[in-house]
Design a protein around this nucleic acid. Structure first.
Lengths: 347, 347
DNA sequence: AAAGTCATGAGGCACGTACCTCATTGGCGG
DNA sequence: CCGCCAATGAGGTACGTGCCTCATGACTTT
């Protein structure tokens, strides 16, 4: 009794019966194989719509000879966000295996479009149904993405979108909104107005250029009493960020707020602590990592905006599964929300 | 070739071979059927661990004769949060069907423990593997939950925990942390200190008593210059909340902040707009609904704390699937985070 | 010693789909 | 009219697990 509440499950047999064709023909239509007249295809599709047939993913997955392969290509290096993404991927590897999704991680040199393109080109459609990449806007990468798509490998681009490419799906936060949110919080934190510093990492990645745009726009629209210093570039690097912040603090004794939209937060916290002004300046940073966590708990950082890598990974896996199983992969996954963390709601 | 990268899938046959027992015995162990000596059980479990066997959910689901039934029992009435939960449930009904999860919604009278208990008692294990309920701390409900658990129906309690029961899993935000977060934000919004009003709904539900606890604790610890007015009870009702807020605003011309931890936000926004002081008072409310959305966009509300019903529903479905399939259901689902929304990061 | 109980083995069918091979049909051109 | 080919039918096997029946051997009870 494959039923709940007395209704039998609708199967391919039902489709065949209603359409007045054989099972083999239904199968040909369902799996896009050749050898069916257009008129017959329509009959089958009408029957599918009429009785509300939905392919049973369990049986489908069981019947197809091979499992689903998903390859994550992530930048190598010391970037804390990427490290936590990698952790999240590893955390989900075993559970995904229960759903016959095999996960593989490939590391490439950070910010090297050519290397990423080579990695993409090297993917074999036999062992990889779906690639998940973090890419800058690079011509070589765009070409590689399109080539992979033509080889029947779906490409997902979390974190940073690739507008010009054939990518199937974007998973990630709205970085303009993130910048706006930082501005809006700082504005409310400083009702008297004041001087606020903006620190960027590299402007190469799209997410790092969207954020300042949103930040400036929101400040201009709502908080005209706040003046912005910068942007200064910390190159996502702890020691550089530390010296920049230290210089900044020395130069502006009246600094009231600070927004670091890049990485290198270890340096940020160190500089603030050393200056003795931690807690007196309202600070917003990005990505929940060991460094920003410590900053929150210690009081040097007020708010952390987070991309929720765990959620992104989960969604990427779900989307990959849906894509590989013939769905469109877009159904029913909400966009990732911007995580906002204070000391008080740290998970 | 059921493989990726050349490694064959580990099946029950492999377990049987490695353990040196028959397939039937492995099956008995895996599905908790009687008739196996303890020593043999250990042999099988050792083999499972050794070769890393994981039950194939697809095949398992396919093999068992019936699908998974999940019943959501939600309070009837005009509560906006429940309405958006119901929407989220309906949104996920179709996608869940692809995974052989049948979703059913049962509505009971709000805040009526006896009615909820009756609904739970009426569930048949034949058509329902898992019930998801929102319950107050009621003796009748606790008993019904335990009874359902004994009938092999797993019970999940999102939103509001039931500490004394046999519930299998809690999905929901940390409401003490939510209260702390509201306090922490208001404290930072009002660096000069000031008077802040606290409005509660009913203190019957656990979430509504946890929030003020966190709120007061955080204020006391970090923001001693802020004085609290209240708590006043709005009974989660728009008209009552409106009159309370109107009276409050009239009585305290110097009110600087407001935290409504209950529902009835339509009334809150109306009272603020009518007073002409919307935007001049920092306001924090709960649950992203049409009313709070409007408040955010219009400027009457600064921040909304949200339980993310969509995420909760998704997790409840996933947990129900895992539970019904013999897993423990707890693996790999992060606790729900507190959503923090400003006008700038509205989704 | 006979009868009974318990642990286990052996094997088979079912679930719904994918994919394969081998007929069979009908229409077409030569 | 014959042969060719495209379209379709018929039917099988496989995927990995759940669940069922029946047989067998060992050990206990009377």
């Amino acid at each position: 009794m494959n039923e709940i509440g007395g209704r039998r499950r609708v199967t391919v047999h039902d489709v065949a019966r209603v359409a007045g064709v054989s099972l083999a023909t239904v199968d040909r239509v369902l799996n896009g194989r050749p050898g069916v007249r257009a008129a017959t295809v329509e009959k089958v599709e009408a029957a599918i719509a009429e009785i509300g047939f939905h392919r049973d993913l369990s049986a489908s997955l069981l019947a197809r000879a091979r499992d689903i392969g998903v390859t994550f290509i992530i930048p190598d290096g010391s970037n804390a966000f990427m490290a936590s993404s990698a952790e999240a991927i590893e955390r989900w590897t075993a559970p995904a295996l229960s759903d016959r999704v095999h996960i593989q991680i490939l590391r490439v040199k950070a910010l090297d479009g050519a290397a990423l393109a080579r990695a993409l080109d090297g993917l074999d459609a036999k062992t990889c149904d779906c690639a998940v990449i973090v890419a800058g806007e690079d011509a070589a990468v765009l070409a590689a993405v399109d080539a992979a798509t033509r080889r029947d490998i779906a490409v997902l681009t979390p974190v940073s979108d690739l507008p010009g490419s054939q990518r199937r799906h974007f998973i990630g936060i709205d970085n303009v909104a993130a910048g706006r949110t930082a501005a809006s919080l700082l504005g409310r934190f400083l009702p008297q107005g004041g001087k606020v510093a903006l620190i960027a990492g590299s402007l190469h990645l799209r997410d790092h250029s969207d954020r300042p745009a949103g930040f400036h726009a929101a400040l201009a629209a709502e908080f005209s009493t706040i003046a912005v210093v910068g942007p200064l570039e910390g190159h996502d690097e702890a020691s550089q960020t530390e010296s920049i912040v230290a210089a900044l603090l020395a130069e502006h004794p009246d600094l009231a707020g600070l927004y670091n939209l890049g990485a290198g937060n270890t340096g940020l916290v160190k500089a603030l602590d050393n200056s003795g002004r931690a807690g007196a300046i309202r600070v917003i940073a990005h990505e929940l990592t060991a460094a920003t966590r410590q900053g929150l708990v210690g009081g040097a950082i007020d708010v952390v905006l987070d991309q929720n890598p765990d959620g992104e990974i989960r969604q990427a896996i779900a989307a990959a599964r849906a894509l590989a199983l013939g769905g469109n992969g877009l159904s029913g996954n909400a966009p990732i929300e911007i995580g906002i963390f204070l000391r008080d709601n740290l998970r």
